[in-house]
C-alpha cells in the first residue's frame, strides 16, 4: 500500500494568513501531529511576498500596494520578491528525515520541483528544473520555489504561474535603478511565462491543483488524501498571523 500524505486545499487567504498556515503546519509536523502535507492555495487580495533577507522598503512600493489593495508579507524562507495574483501556490511540509527527502538542500529542491514538473506534464507542458530554485519551460520561468528547514522539518513553498501581469508587478516592486526599469520590464516579459500563455486558454485553479496533485503522487509514489487543518494548527496559524506575519515588527525588520 502506498504511503498516504495529507492534501490541504485552503483556498484564498490574506498574505499573513497564508504564511501563518505554512508555519503552523511546519510546527505540527515537527511534533508528529500530522503526516507529510502538501498544500495548494491562493492569495486574496493579491500580495507581494519578500524573502527573509530582503528589505521590505527597498523591494516593495508600499504606497502603491496600499493604493491598489495589495498585501505584503515577509516569508520565513529566503529568495526573492514575488507578486502573487494569478497562480497556484504550493507548499510541502515533511520531516527532514523522511526517506524521500535528500539531506542535501539543493538535491531536495530538485526532488520537490520534480513533482511540479510531473504536474505540468499532466497539462501537456514540458518543463525542467533549473537550479537554484526555478522551473522553466521553453526557456522561460514558470515556477519558483523557496525552502527552509526548521525543527528538523522541511518547508518548501512556491508558485506555478497561471497568468502574469509584469507591468502590474513592476508597479509594486522597486528596482535598484529607475533608469533601466523599462528594459527590466521587457527582459522579465521575455523570461517569464504562464500556463495560460502556453496552453492558449484560461485554466482554473482546480484544474492546476488536480494536475499538481498527480505530480506529487507520481514523484513521491504516495497517495494524497484531502484533509483539513487540525484545531491546533488553526490556533497556531491565528497566533502566527497576529504576532508574526501580520505584525509590523516582522515585515519591516530588514
Amino acid at each position: 500500500m502506498k504511503e498516504q500524505w495529507r492534501l490541504l486545499k485552503t483556498g484564498y487567504n490574506t498574505a499573513a494568513m497564508n504564511m501563518a498556515i505554512d508555519r503552523a503546519v511546519l510546527v505540527a509536523s515537527s511534533k508528529d501531529m500530522v503526516p507529510p502535507t502538501v498544500r495548494f492555495y491562493g492569495w486574496s487580495p493579491p500580495a507581494i511576498s519578500i524573502g527573509y533577507f530582503q528589505s521590505l522598503k527597498e523591494e516593495v512600493d508600499l504606497d502603491n500596494c496600499n493604493k491598489l489593495g495589495v498585501n505584503y508579507v515577509r516569508r520565513i524562507t529566503g529568495g526573492g520578491a514575488v507578486f502573487h495574483e494569478d497562480e497556484l501556490t504550493y507548499s510541502i511540509i515533511i520531516p527532514e528525515s523522511h526517506k524521500e527527502i535528500p539531506n542535501n538542500i539543493m538535491d531536495s529542491y530538485g526532488r520537490i520541483c520534480g513533482a511540479m514538473i510531473k504536474g505540468l506534464k499532466e497539462l501537456c507542458i514540458q518543463s525542467k528544473y533549473v537550479p537554484i530554485n526555478d522551473i522553466i519551460t521553453d526557456g522561460k520561468k514558470i515556477s519558483g520555489s523557496a525552502q527552509t528547514r526548521k525543527l528538523k522539518t522541511v518547508l518548501q513553498h512556491g508558485t506555478i504561474l497561471t497568468d502574469v501581469d509584469v507591468d502590474k508587478m513592476f508597479s509594486l516592486l522597486k528596482v535598484p535603478d529607475e533608469k533601466i526599469k523599462d528594459k527590466l520590464i521587457t527582459d522579465v516579459k521575455q523570461r517569464v511565462t504562464s500556463i495560460n500563455h502556453i496552453l492558449g486558454r484560461k485554466i482554473g485553479f482546480e484544474e492546476v491543483a488536480a494536475a499538481m496533485k498527480q505530480g506529487f503522487e507520481k514523484e513521491f509514489n504516495v497517495e494524497l488524501i484531502e484533509g483539513s487543518l487540525l484545531e491546533e494548527e488553526k490556533e497556531l496559524a491565528s497566533e502566527f498571523e497576529r504576532e508574526c506575519f501580520g505584525a509590523k515588527d516582522w515585515n519591516h525588520r530588514r
Binding site: 524573502g51 527573509y52 533577507f53 530582503q54 528589505s55 527597498e58 520565513i76 524562507t77 529566503g78 529568495g79 526573492g80 520578491a81 538542500i105 537554484i132 530554485n133 523557496a146 525552502q147 527552509t148 528547514r149 526548521k150 530588514r254
Partner: peptide, 15 residues
C-alpha cells in the same frame, strides 16, 4: 552591517 538580498542561508536567523 545589514546583509540583504534574494539568496538563501540555512539557518536563516544566523544572518
Amino acid at each position: 552591517i545589514k546583509i540583504m538580498g534574494d539568496f538563501f542561508a540555512y539557518p536563516e536567523e544566523a544572518i
